[in-house]
Design a protein around this nucleic acid. Structure first.
Length: 437
DNA sequence: CGTCTTTGACCTGCGC
DNA sequence: GCGCAGGTCAAAGACG
């Protein structure tokens, strides 16, 4: 008996030693992660500046083409709008974030430790959300479709409990259909959209050697939203995701960002404000309205049966010219309408302004990449904007979990801006933030 | 045991 | 009416 006790004690000591070793190892790992995060932060800042510079450049070159579009503002001013929106919002958002600990501390140079803590705390489920799938799952997915499921968020996202502050649009969940297609480089193995999906079928599609997978939203019982995921026949590293339907439940921040943006595109496309002919016949114009920073990133076509908004996010925004393809958004909108852009003013400049406003959320789609389009009007309401914490959380999760830094950066920026939009009144640039309708 | 994916079968719409 | 293609269902199996 005593021998047993002594043995037992010895085992405990061993365990203790093991735990200590483990703890040391974790500390080392923690430090390493901090360093990584610090580096990511630095890269983010640098890239942000770069993006701003490119945007200014882009606006400068494109101003000649789309001159009188923007409320008759001088081109100079117009060129300022986007970059400042980008910068200021980001800054204010960051400041807001910092204010959690110190309201006066508005410096951008947070220590890596600070950032690390923020990330770890805020990540929670989101981190898993955008992580790779567990080995076994992945191992099972060796069918052709497994490629497209590399970023299927279905299971992981169970961990991401949707925010309670969501939008109640259940009454709007009638069968208006909206389609959003997203193309994403598979380099980002797991791009999540904040929603939960369950695969219910797979089919080989004609003209494409890769099978098409069918998913159903499972975030709420009876949610009619479905999506299809298929690899691009031309470039199999590109995933094409098509969304259909409207969620009948509140959306997570990431999903909301995407929804609002795509809806914005749709509303512009289909609202009476701009004659459909104008919008559809001048795709690049709308595209620039949505993504002023890069006319090559978005195109709009009137190809039947639905008008389609394609966001070619496969283009690397960090370079002056398209380098690689990130993500495509095709937003065909079948029946559409009145629900889509109820609040949009009937004048193009305002639409354009809203586009600028929503532009900030567009990049968020690249990451969150999907979701339901038809929620813009509600989402534009300030009180219903995702909280800064949520959006930053989403961004942090994306950055920490997504190996594709470009995509992660896009998500981070959009999230920050989105959060800032939600807190516009406190930001320093209330003067140039968008015409919110 | 519950959840999720896989996959063949079935259903539906469309063109000929 | 027939065949094709796309979409959905549901049983079976895998996984935690």
């Amino acid at each position: 008996m005593m021998g047993y006790r002594r043995t037992s004690l010895m085992i405990s000591d061993q365990k203790l030693a093991q735990l200590q070793v483990e703890l040391q190892r974790m500390n080392v790992e923690n430090q390493r992660l901090r360093d990584m995060l610090s580096q990511v932060t630095n890269n983010y800042n640098a890239l942000q500046m770069h993006i701003v510079a490119l945007m200014q450049q882009s606006r400068g070159t494109e101003a000649n083409q789309e001159h009188e579009v923007v409320q008759g503002k001088p081109e100079e001013k117009k060129q300022e709008v986007v970059p400042r929106q980008f910068l200021d919002l980001g800054r204010s958002a960051e400041a807001d974030e910092m204010s959690h600990s110190s309201s006066d501390e508005r410096t951008r140079s947070a220590t890596p430790q600070t950032n690390m803590e923020t990330a770890s705390v805020k990540n929670n489920g989101n981190q898993e959300n955008s992580s790779f799938r567990d080995g076994k799952r992945v191992g099972r997915e060796d069918s052709p479709d497994s490629e497209s499921q590399g970023w299927n968020p279905s299971k992981v996202q169970k961990l991401n409990s949707p925010p309670s502050k969501g939008i109640d649009q259940s009454t709007e969940a009638t069968m208006r259909k909206a389609r959003v297609s997203v193309r994403a480089r598979s380099e980002a193995p797991m791009i999540t959209d904040g929603c939960q999906w369950r695969k219910y079928g797979q089919k080989m599609a004609k003209g494409n050697p890769c099978p098409r997978a069918y998913y159903r939203c499972t975030m709420a019982v009876g949610c009619p939203v479905r999506k299809q995921v298929q690899r691009c026949a031309d470039d199999k590293t590109i995933l094409i995701t098509t969304y259909e339907g409207n969620h009948n439940h509140p959306l997570p921040p990431a999903a909301m960002a995407m929804a609002s943006t795509t809806t914005a595109a749709a509303s512009m496309l289909l609202s009476g404000s701009m004659s459909s002919a104008d919008g559809l016949m001048n795709p690049n114009l709308l595209a620039r309205a949505i993504l002023p920073c890069s006319s090559s990133m978005a195109t709009i076509s009137a190809s039947a049966p639905f008008p389609t908004v394609t966001l070619d996010l496969t283009h690397n925004p960090n370079t002056t010219q398209v380098q690689r393809p990130p993500t495509h958004f095709q937003v065909p909108f079948p029946g559409q309408p009145q629900n889509f852009a109820p609040a949009t003013a009937p004048q193009f400049p305002q639409v354009f302004g809203q586009a600028l406003y929503n532009q900030s959320k567009f990049s968020g789609l690249q990451l969150s990449q999907e979701t339901v389009p038809s929620q813009l009007p509600q989402q534009l309401h300030p009180a219903q904007q995702p909280s800064l914490v949520d959006t930053v959380s989403a961004a942090t999760a994306a950055i920490t979990a997504d190996p594709n830094f470009t995509a992660a950066l896009a998500a981070a920026i959009s999230s920050i801006i989105g959060g800032a939009n939600g807190n516009n009144t406190t930001s320093t640039n209330a003067h140039n933030t968008s015409n919110r309708n």
